[in-house]
Amino acid sequence: RSVMTEEYKVPDGMVGFIIGRGGEQISRIQQESGCKIQIAPDSGGLPERSCMLTGTPESVQSAKRLLDQIVE
Rank of each mutant, 00 (worst) to 15 (best):
residue 17 F to P: 14
residue 56 T to E: 10
residue 38 Q to S: 13
residue 1 R to C: 13
residue 52 M to P: 01
residue 2 S to G: 14
residue 50 S to K: 12
residue 28 R to V: 05
residue 4 M to A: 07
residue 42 D to C: 12
residue 39 I to Q: 02
residue 18 I to S: 02
residue 26 I to L: 15
residue 68 D to I: 06
residue 63 A to V: 02
residue 53 L to C: 02
residue 8 Y to H: 15
residue 71 V to F: 08
residue 70 I to S: 10
residue 24 E to P: 03
residue 17 F to D: 15
residue 20 G to H: 07
residue 42 D to P: 14
residue 28 R to A: 08
residue 26 I to N: 01
residue 68 D to G: 14
residue 40 A to V: 06
residue 54 T to W: 03
residue 10 V to S: 01
residue 41 P to M: 08
residue 58 E to F: 05
residue 15 V to H: 04
residue 35 C to Y: 00
residue 2 S to D: 03
residue 32 E to C: 06
residue 68 D to R: 12
residue 58 E to G: 09
residue 32 E to R: 08
residue 57 P to F: 15
residue 14 M to N: 05
residue 11 P to C: 04
residue 36 K to Q: 10
residue 10 V to Q: 01
residue 2 S to I: 07
residue 1 R to V: 10
residue 3 V to L: 09
residue 71 V to W: 06
residue 41 P to G: 08
residue 23 G to R: 10
residue 38 Q to H: 11
residue 22 G to P: 03
residue 8 Y to I: 11
residue 45 G to V: 05
residue 43 S to N: 10
residue 64 K to W: 02
residue 3 V to T: 13
residue 6 E to C: 06
residue 64 K to V: 06
residue 53 L to M: 06
residue 50 S to Y: 05
residue 64 K to F: 02
residue 2 S to F: 11
residue 24 E to Y: 08
residue 43 S to A: 12
residue 13 G to Q: 15
residue 57 P to L: 09
residue 16 G to R: 13
residue 70 I to A: 15
residue 5 T to Y: 06
residue 49 R to S: 06
residue 41 P to H: 04
residue 52 M to E: 09
residue 10 V to W: 03
residue 25 Q to T: 10
residue 21 R to T: 06
residue 52 M to L: 14
residue 15 V to F: 14
residue 40 A to C: 12
residue 48 E to T: 11
residue 57 P to Q: 15
residue 9 K to F: 11
residue 56 T to D: 08
residue 49 R to I: 04
residue 23 G to V: 03
residue 42 D to I: 07
residue 16 G to T: 09
residue 57 P to C: 05
residue 33 S to I: 02
residue 44 G to C: 12
residue 18 I to F: 10
residue 36 K to Y: 04
residue 1 R to T: 14
residue 45 G to S: 11
residue 25 Q to F: 02
residue 3 V to W: 07
residue 23 G to E: 13
residue 72 E to P: 08
residue 66 L to M: 13
residue 62 S to Y: 08
residue 49 R to P: 04
residue 23 G to N: 09
residue 60 V to G: 00
residue 5 T to F: 13
residue 28 R to I: 02
residue 47 P to S: 12
residue 64 K to R: 12
residue 46 L to P: 04
residue 54 T to G: 02
residue 44 G to N: 12
residue 55 G to Q: 00
residue 66 L to P: 01
residue 22 G to I: 06
residue 29 I to G: 00
residue 9 K to Q: 11
residue 33 S to N: 01
residue 58 E to A: 09
residue 57 P to I: 06
residue 21 R to S: 15
residue 2 S to M: 15
residue 61 Q to N: 12
residue 40 A to I: 08
residue 59 S to C: 07
residue 51 C to P: 01
residue 50 S to P: 10
residue 4 M to L: 11
residue 69 Q to A: 13
residue 16 G to F: 03
residue 67 L to Q: 01
residue 42 D to K: 11
residue 54 T to R: 07
residue 55 G to H: 01
residue 28 R to M: 07
residue 45 G to T: 07
residue 47 P to G: 12
residue 15 V to Q: 07
residue 42 D to F: 06
residue 51 C to K: 00
residue 52 M to K: 10
residue 55 G to L: 00
residue 36 K to V: 12
residue 66 L to D: 04
residue 57 P to G: 12
residue 14 M to W: 06
residue 11 P to R: 07
residue 17 F to Q: 15
residue 47 P to N: 13
residue 14 M to E: 04
residue 60 V to N: 05
residue 68 D to P: 01
residue 39 I to M: 11
residue 23 G to W: 05
residue 33 S to H: 02
residue 32 E to T: 12
residue 5 T to N: 08
residue 31 Q to A: 11
residue 64 K to E: 03
residue 9 K to A: 05
residue 3 V to H: 10
residue 59 S to N: 09
residue 57 P to W: 05
residue 19 I to C: 14
residue 42 D to N: 11
residue 12 D to A: 15
residue 42 D to E: 14
residue 36 K to L: 11
residue 32 E to V: 09
residue 23 G to Q: 08
